[in-house]
Nucleic acid binder design. Structure first.
Lengths: 202, 202, 202, 202
DNA sequence: TATGAATGAGCGTTCATTCAT
DNA sequence: GATGAATGAACGCTCATTCAT
């Protein structure tokens, strides 16, 4: 096969995978993680069930693809932010805003990524859950903040967990009730609380 | 049927439901949310599968009952704390410690209650997840704190969400990795962070 | 449950298993070992597919049951013959005659028992294939014959293999072409050849 | 199309068929009869799956071709031996030795040819299994032996069946347990038993 | 003619629900 | 009311075959 033909084939495969991905996301949105069956993905993608297996060896592999594809832009942005010459607090805020924006669109896929126990099991083998990755990244920011003297020398692991938990639940509330909170505003509220605490400034 | 007979019948029904509940919790603990089948619940409860349907119209209804029943002691404790003559921060800490202790015993049921997508759907129909209630209760504490002048006048809804998120994820991490963090300590860390914030005390 | 009820239940279960067994044999006969699907067994037995799983945990278990049930009477007879006070040659002849009669009825099940590679795999785990069991039993007869001085001191393992092979292929030819050879006659021919050999008596 | 072009085409087709045959044998060897899928044959042959259907109308036809092609050298050798000026017993021994050697190399294809139920059905349609041919050929040897006065005037059909059965099961045992019996020795044991019988020489 | 993606019937298995006893 | 066998739709997955390129 010529190089050109090969390239074209790769493109077609990539497009099919994307189509299946989108179908899966639709199913996820309409029926939840529980309702994500290969039959429904196939139907939603407009292909035969067997065809899915031309692109993904198993449902598990499809799940991993969805995970990867969804989380990828977030991860890229995170790496970018991490490398940027900004104070820790600003990095945190940027990341939170991005997360809120990124997942604001779609409740099904968010649950699937962060909360579905099946997904977690599948992912643990190869990639870690989105949650674990998020915690790890956040820790880096907290450590930077401490090093800069901007944060108290708290337990970064615990802090990262609490912070991510706060972000996730904020997102979930928004998705669950279709709230209309600008990401900007939510991020600011989060940072304000975590930076300054509840106690009145003396 | 006489009133007495009626009363007795109610009692019997209630006991059966409780027995089934306990069986379900056992199954949940041993096999996870995925493994919670009517067969297994029936077997663990020592009744016939068909009998479950005399007490719960469907699996969905059983799920709702489990939810309710599990949440109940937490709710009771919360009401008690709420009524107590304590400063907001102490109330928060007490509640957090109780939650951590209450769910530390049992990973299966926790996942089931907060994260299982099947459960989630079911719950949304009737009271839109246990989270809501927790948030509502927490709001009261934050409002009290503000009224007392102990807290800044922040958005209590958002704060409650963030706080609950932090608690939940802290719990989950602990359960997921079988960490050995005393509830006392975790509660203290949570309170410290939310009260004082990340910024160094000036 | 009373002892009586228990006994009745056992009987019902046993009858269902037998019914399923017969259905499986029918399918085996009509469609061969390849065509033995759970769907077809269920249909032939006049029950829903799911019901099969109330009596057999898996297809493998059903296969083992068929194996056992079919081979059981042959095994019983063999044990009886083995214990009887007869010369080795007569024992051999009796067993061969029994085999030919026992399997004369049904080609499907015979193939399934002795030749189907799938069956072999399944059986190896728990029971040995019919073939192995047959060889082992035959060896005993040859050893007896040698001890009695009626047979030459040949390699009993090999001899048992050859003998069983001869029996099996004789059976298969008969089944394959629906020949009308009396078991009696076939057994006599087998014994004559194996005892006296091809060479003319000097 | 010119005669030459036709001839060339035939050659190409024949070579392709042979290539596919070899691929099928490889698959058979590596994965067993169960694992012989058109996908794997195509992959092993280095052609597209669809191409297989240019040379064989169906999997069934491919199976028949494999059968034919595998049996062929044995058949050729048999014809050769048959025509040779040797006593019947020596011919028998030569053929048995050849068979044992021919199939000793390869368990997968042997099972496939003689025991796989799928194959069996296919073969029955067109030539009722390779066995028949073997039996027919063996009969000729026994008839020769009788004519020469070297064998008793036994029923040659039955004898041929028993003999073939003995050979086949001997082979199968060897393959199933990976025994290390030289073909020479096995052939000698077979002949000794069939010629001289079990009874002690008087 | 060669290709290989698309197909869809079929596989073994699970499980919430029903219903005759 | 209690039972548990029967049900059948649904699941993830396979693979012989087809057909547009």
């Amino acid at each position: 096969m010529s190089r050109l033909a090969k390239r074209r084939k790769e493109l077609v495969v990539s497009m099919m995978k994307d189509g299946i991905y989108e179908a899966a996301v639709r199913v996820l949105t309409e029926r939840g993680a529980e309702g994500l069956t290969m039959d429904r993905v196939a139907e939603s993608a407009g292909v035969a069930k067997g065809s899915l297996y031309n692109y993904f060896r198993s449902k598990c592999e499809l799940l991993q693809f969805i995970h990867e594809k969804t989380i990828e832009p977030a991860r890229d942005f995170l790496a970018e932010v991490r490398a940027a010459p900004l104070p820790a607090a600003e990095k945190l805020q940027a990341v939170v805003r991005m997360w809120l924006e990124h997942f604001a669109t779609n409740r099904g896929i968010f649950d699937f990524l962060f909360n579905d126990p099946r997904t977690r099991e599948v992912m643990e083998d190869c990639k870690r859950s989105g949650r674990l990755e998020g915690i790890e990244q956040l820790r880096a920011f907290f450590e930077q903040g401490i090093a800069e003297g901007a944060f108290r020398p708290i337990d970064t692991q615990r802090t990262a967990e609490m912070f991510l938990g706060a972000v996730i639940l904020t997102m979930e509330q928004q998705l669950m009730f279709n709230l209309d909170r600008p990401a900007e505003e939510s991020a600011a509220a989060l940072l304000d609380l975590f930076l300054n605490g509840l106690k009145p400034q003396t």
